[in-house]
Write a protein that binds this DNA or RNA. Structure first.
Lengths: 216, 216
DNA sequence: AATGGCATTCTTGTATACACGATAGTTGAC
DNA sequence: GTCAACTATCGTGTATACAAGAATGCCATT
């Protein structure tokens, strides 16, 4: 439990939304939430305020909070921006790579290799996250890193759906290899290009996303 | 005055921060703010929560809220990300340009021309903002547009300082011309490249920024 | 039977009261 | 004289009470 109830609730509700426990479009009743978590409405409201500012829910004045339903098109747009930011992170990482970052990338990369070889989709999902975070960190841009982590969080559920697609694991890992190679050889432009295509959901991958969303 | 006091306060305090009325590092006392705006502490707290989520202030548990002091390096990082996002917006705009967007860009662009010709730095500052927003809108990506607008807002004060630099007006406008040309001819890559360098603060422009910040 | 207006009820928005933790100032001891 | 500990005060965190707006259901009228 975090420092104060408000932040704890924010994380709690955020996770509930990201794990679809609170479905998109669902109304979030302050009193119900307060009872559920055994607190008063005050910290609940503070948590909701923050989630509204982040963009996870929408609070319409006097009409309560609802979970935002992004819809396929908007999710595509979010991946598009994510791809751009990761591309920047990759290009900066290639330019600024130091020993510690290199080791962090290598370590997470080899963990991905193991999960991919084992065909363990859940493990790969987690290791993949760490791999990408290692690249953000290697960019040496605190602000960029924060933006990437935040957007990554919001896209987490959809990323998870994507990994379920057949062969996606091995494809993803081989793309990782090329990315690591570009970063380690200091080829910023190539790292940027590779990450953009790796992260973006062009063509059939967008259809995959829509299909897996519809399946829920 | 907005729908409810909380949102109104959020905007009010946000503007106060962006206009340096509340200086970076300054402590924001809930009671003082409540008295100043003639409301109770509750909506003040809600406003602060949101500003914390946006990243304008930092609330340390039990220790109150302080205005975040980005520092030159972090501002540089923010411009770096802004440049990347604007580059993406430009490239999308070039690909997707329609009649309405084209007209909006043309209109704001010619307003910039007039302000630049008149040497009116304040007017150009405003028109420039509209010009960039027209490009965001032309990208036809709602999410990207929102991200750009938000970051643009946060960088507003520093952008203003930048424009004070000698000759920056005419330089900026001629860059605009090239950007408009690239977008209108459908050259996405060129639009991206031009916007990146237009928005970023490489080399001497970073020193200009630091100097003008120190001058305050 | 359908629709419009009114009243009731439920939920949100704001204020206030109270509790707990942090900070600062003062006093005492070494 | 300096440092540490204790106490008092101030400010944040949470709960609750109250006010106001929105939604819903019922009744009357057409």
């Amino acid at each position: 439990m975090s420092e104060n109830v408000g932040r704890w609730l924010r994380d709690e509700i955020e996770n509930a939304i990201l794990s679809y426990e609170f479905a998109p479009g669902e109304r979030l009743d302050e009193t119900v939430l307060a009872n559920r978590f055994g607190v008063s409405r005050t910290p609940v409201r503070e948590a909701l305020m923050q989630l509204d500012a982040i963009g996870l829910i929408e609070i319409r004045p006097r009409r309560g909070a609802v979970v935002i339903d992004p819809g396929p098109h908007r999710i595509y747009e979010m991946f598009e921006v994510m791809a751009e930011l990761e591309g920047l992170a990759g290009s900066l990482a290639a330019r600024r790579l130091d020993k510690a970052s290199r080791e962090a990338i290598t370590a997470t990369h080899s963990r991905c290799e193991q999960s991919a070889a084992a065909g363990d989709s859940d493990a790969y999902y987690y290791d993949n996250e760490e791999f990408h975070k290692a690249i953000y960190a290697a960019s040496r841009s605190d602000f960029l890193q924060e933006q990437c982590v935040q957007l990554h969080r919001r896209l987490r559920p959809y990323r998870r759906l994507q990994l379920r697609v057949r062969n996606r694991l091995s494809t993803s890992f081989s793309e990782h290899c090329a990315i690591v190679d570009a970063i380690f050889t200091g080829d910023g432009d190539e790292a940027r290009r590779l990450l953009r295509t790796h992260v973006g959901i062009q063509g059939e991958r967008f259809s995959d996303l829509v299909a897996s969303m519809a399946a829920r």
